[in-house]
């Protein structure tokens, strides 16, 4: 159900592949035609399932030799047990999820870690379009007009970091990429201004027991 145009092997796939451990169990939410899962199977020998809503993508996933389960992510992940996967991935799909908070909670319930990537709405070109053009921004990553966009949960890198902080989610790793899926100095030092795509590896903050929080 990714609403964003795909390329052959996307560089963000490579980053996700670097993040996951070999032989890991992975759930890919909104797996589209299954190319990410296929890439992870081929590079990291992962095992798992892609979840996908669109009927037309199911056969494509099977052609890509991945396990695919047709379901709607807006219902959460009720058919998956707690901590039954090492990683739950949501790649460039967050922006079209109705109950994004619920889904991210679900990802961290089912997975030991979550990997989330999304188009950064804080990119300078988007700011400029709204500030100077006075119109809802349209970009390579977000090609839709306001009235027909499936992308209803747009956020910036800063927004997402604040969201994680407020919800007790630990950011283990993050990468911000430009439109060509590269990280240059501008993305490194001004991620929210020059980042086109943001990627996060997350886990739940360990509950700190009363014992250790007591001041000496």
């Amino acid at each position: 159900m990714n609403q964003i145009s795909h390329q052959a092997i996307r560089p963000d796939f490579k980053i996700i592949s670097d993040w996951v451990s070999t032989n890991a169990q992975v759930l890919d939410l909104g797996c589209a035609d299954g190319s990410l899962m296929r890439h992870l199977q081929e590079t990291k020998n992962v095992y798992g399932y892609g979840l996908e809503r669109e009927a037309k993508n199911i056969a494509k996933c099977i052609d890509n030799n991945i396990n695919v389960i047709q379901m709607n992510l807006n219902d959460g992940l009720p058919s998956f047990e707690d901590k039954s996967f090492n990683y739950v991935v949501l790649s460039l799909t967050l922006q079209s999820i109705k109950h994004a908070t619920v889904l991210i909670d679900e990802m961290l319930r089912v997975g030991e870690e979550a990997i989330v990537s999304f188009p950064n709405f804080g990119h300078w070109s988007i700011r400029l379009q709204l500030a100077l053009g006075g119109k809802m921004p349209v970009s390579k990553r977000l090609p839709y007009k306001w009235h027909d966009t499936p992308n209803i949960r747009l956020c910036t890198v800063q927004d997402f970091e604040a969201f994680c902080n407020n919800r007790g989610i630990r950011i283990l790793e993050s990468r911000v990429l430009n439109n060509n899926f590269e990280t240059t100095l501008t993305q490194k030092y001004f991620p929210n201004l020059f980042g086109s795509i943001a990627m996060f590896r997350l886990s739940k903050k360990r509950k700190i027991s009363q014992h250790t929080t007591q001041e000496p």
Partner: peptide
């Protein structure tokens, strides 16, 4: 899937 079997649906 709880048995970690290959399944597509």
């Amino acid at each position: 899937q709880d048995n970690k079997l290959n399944v597509s649906y």
